[in-house]
């Protein structure tokens, strides 16, 4: 619960106490009657108001302590929050879609079974019904992806009205995008940082000189080498490093240590580039 609330507010929560909880009305959600918490100094209230479609009601309870109160809301247990909204209606039959139904079937209306417009607010993990973790089960991810595409692909809707076709195209491409992002460890890691508010920015230049030196040397060696076995040696060593870093990364993400994860990901990007060059070299020289 603590982790869930922390995720919701970008990890800036310092303390919280829950006064009462209800039974779980929604899948992956906890209904909360009352939570008061003391945010850290850099807590940004405007960010809380933007989560999901439902506005979060935050009431400053005490001006001296700066404590906030959170009332009557459903907190997703699944990290990367989406507020469970009850206000959505099916565009086709106009029946109301409760959060419960929505969670069970986000892509189709449970009454008329019609495809729905794409839901922008959900994370890639939610879209593919996967756990938000770095070492996610790739096979399961692929399974979910194929299953979804078998239902959402525009080919299935070729004889349907234009509007339905466009919903299918949107849904399908959103699922594609989510899958592409989550499939590769590097992009998955970068995306997870983005979700946590610790994205790697273009202007970032905070990187150890000794590490840069190492990368420079590997690159120099690689660009001079024509001997395939030597190139392969470098590639193998590089792969080992990639493996190591990814293991570390999974641990840091698990511990929600995003700063450290960010640092590792920056290195990972460099090694991934080397890996790419090695593969290119091996590939082109064989042909």
């Amino acid at each position: 619960m603590a982790a869930s609330i922390r995720t919701l507010f970008g990890g800036e929560l310092v303390r919280f106490c829950m006064t009462r909880t209800n039974k779980i009305p929604f899948r992956n959600c906890l209904h909360v009657r009352n939570v008061s918490f003391l945010p850290s100094s850099d807590f940004d209230i405007s960010r809380c108001n933007k989560i999901g479609r439902k506005r979060v009601k935050l009431l400053p309870t005490c001006s001296t302590t700066g404590r906030y109160l959170l009332r009557n809301m459903s907190l997703p247990l699944n990290p990367v929050a989406r507020m469970c909204s009850t206000s959505q209606r099916c565009w086709n039959c106009n029946s109301e879609r409760s959060s419960d139904e929505f969670n069970k079937m986000p892509y189709f209306c449970s009454i008329c079974k019609e495809i729905q417009p794409v839901e922008e607010d959900i994370s890639h993990f939610q879209r593919l019904d996967c756990e938000n973790r770095f070492d996610l089960d790739v096979e399961e991810l692929q399974k979910h992806f194929r299953l979804l595409q078998s239902k959402l692909h525009p080919d299935k809707f070729s004889r349907r009205p234009e509007r339905v076709q466009s919903f299918s195209a949107q849904q399908s491409s959103a699922v594609n995008k989510a899958y592409r992002t989550l499939l590769h460890p590097l992009s998955r890691g970068l995306y997870m940082l983005e979700l946590a508010g610790h994205a790697v920015e273009e202007g970032d230049s905070n990187i150890e000189p000794t590490f840069l030196m190492e990368i420079m040397e590997i690159n120099e060696k690689l660009s001079e080498l024509d001997d395939l076995t030597a190139v392969k040696q470098i590639g193998d060593k590089n792969e080992e490093k990639l493996h190591e870093l990814m293991k570390d990364l999974a641990v840091e993400f698990e511990n929600r240590n995003f700063e450290k994860a960010r640092e590792i990901l920056m290195r990972l990007k460099y090694y991934a580039n080397v890996d790419d060059k090695v593969k290119q070299k091996l590939g082109t020289s064989i042909v």
Binding site: D135, H184, H243, K247, A250, K269, A272
Partner: peptide, 15 residues
Amino acid sequence: MAAANMGKLSLVRPL
């Protein structure tokens, strides 16, 4: 499980 999932290095592509 973690190691098995991360074993596919060809998945690492520069972005």
